[in-house]
Amino acid sequence: MATLWTGISMEESFVFAGFGGQGVILTGKLLAQAGADYGLQVTWLPSYGPEMRGGTANCTVILSNEPIGSPVVDNPTALVAMNLPSLDRFEKTVAKAGTILINSSLVARPTERDDVRVLNVPANDIAVSLGNSQAANMVALGAIIKATGIISLELIKSTMVRMLSHKDSANLIAVNQQALEAGYSAL
């Protein structure tokens, strides 16, 4: 297999999960787009429908240097759990030696797994300190790309700027950029 820019040669599969309004679907899309920009094979598979209204939402993102078969994964190598129900639901599925990122601002309990790497990131608190609690998802994304090393911070930032630029909101872009950086350096 070819190697990624960090020297990692593999396939990473991410599950982003949280409340409907936490932006996990968009976060996954951003990672997938950045992966595609980098020339990787990617798939992005959302949960959809009424689930998204108020309930829980999640999406699965796979980045690989090989063609991707199934966009459905049994055992993701990384989980970003933005709230407790997400941790409850996906904790057990994470692959051995995988990564679980817990949004410790909203999730009080530790994980029960001892065979994975656990990162506690107070994503909401960090976002609030930057002046926008909505950016917690970007904090988490910054942290998980650092942890997995699959995409560089620069790349994800430039992809984000491109994805949001048509929404002509310089302010939103600046906040998200800070949030990505803060998440990246929170580890």
């Binding site: 899309k29 595609a36 990617v42 959302p46 959809y48």
Partner: peptide, 10 residues
Amino acid sequence: DGMLGQMMEP
């Protein structure tokens, strides 16, 4: 089907 309709890839 819904999976193909909703997912994204390059």
